[in-house]
Amino acid sequence: MGGRSSARDSAGGVVLILPDGRPESIRGPSLLSYAAALPLGRALARAGRADGLVVHPVHYRYRGWNGPEAQPAADATWAADEVVRRYGDVPVCLAGHGMGGRAALRAAGHPAVNSVLALAPWLPEEDTAAEPEPVRQLVGRQVLIVHGTNDARTNPELSYRLAERAKKASRDICRFEVHSDGHALRQYHEEVLALAADFVLGALFHRSYARPVADALAAPPPLGLRMPLAGGFGRSLRP
């Protein structure tokens, strides 16, 4: 987050954008990753302008996750604290891509966070990890995971497994699969942005979700966790 304010600013809700990164690196944040996250931030800001939605990118200290340090998740928690300081008691959505998706899921336990949007999240291999990725912090949060089935950088099956474990503790979790799309989700870019906007506005401002999102949240596994994102989603968001 950037900028300063001498008085408490006004917002109806806040989205914190968490860019992608690398598993290990102590270099500064990647400008390319921030640039890649801008379209999501702009789309959400446009969609939520009438509701007073404010969107802030989070500037990491380092571009790496760096093992148990989980530094992007710590930065996301710091940014959520800053939202409370700047805006007061407003709902916060953590929205991340790749490593930022993992940071969003991990930092969801912050009291101000009511929702998480994780696009193509980078997650550890559960068979080799010292302990499974935590999911308890997702209880009480609205969670949407979106993953391309042809993602060669982050394994979509790992995000399914995490969603499956999380669904046992909380019903407010759904996952969409973008068939034949890759890590950047470029093939169905407009549909992904429309899905993200529908979810964020529903979670932060208590709007009714589009029918596919509502159905995915209500459906038991595996249906609600392997929901296909249909081409043209967003042209008619409401049933």
Rank of each mutant, 00 (worst) to 15 (best):
G2W: 06
A11T: 00
G21M: 08
R22G: 00
P23W: 07
S30F: 05
L32V: 09
Y34E: 11
A37Q: 13
P39M: 08
P39Y: 13
P39H: 10
G41E: 05
A43R: 14
L44Y: 12
G48R: 02
G52A: 00
H56D: 07
V58T: 09
Y62W: 06
N66M: 12
N66L: 14
N66P: 14
T77D: 14
T77A: 15
A80G: 10
E82R: 05
V83F: 05
V84T: 13
Y87M: 08
D89P: 02
V90R: 10
L94W: 04
G96F: 10
G96P: 08
H97E: 06
G100A: 07
R102T: 03
L105D: 00
R106G: 00
G109P: 13
H110C: 11
A112R: 15
S115I: 08
A118H: 09
L119G: 07
P121A: 05
P124K: 11
D127H: 07
E133W: 06
Q137W: 03
L138Q: 11
V143C: 09
L144D: 01
L144E: 02
V146I: 12
V146H: 10
T149H: 07
N150I: 02
N150D: 12
A152S: 09
R153S: 11
T154E: 13
T154H: 14
N155A: 13
E157V: 01
L158K: 10
A166C: 06
K167G: 03
K167Q: 08
I173V: 14
C174A: 15
R175N: 02
D181V: 04
A184R: 12
L185M: 10
L185T: 07
R186C: 00
Q187D: 15
V192N: 12
A194F: 09
A194P: 05
A197Q: 02
F199W: 05
F199M: 04
G202E: 08
F205H: 13
F205W: 11
F205Q: 02
V213I: 15
D215R: 13
L217M: 12
R226V: 11
M227V: 05
G232R: 14
G232K: 11
G234T: 05
R235T: 05
R235E: 11
S236C: 00
R238Q: 15
R238N: 14
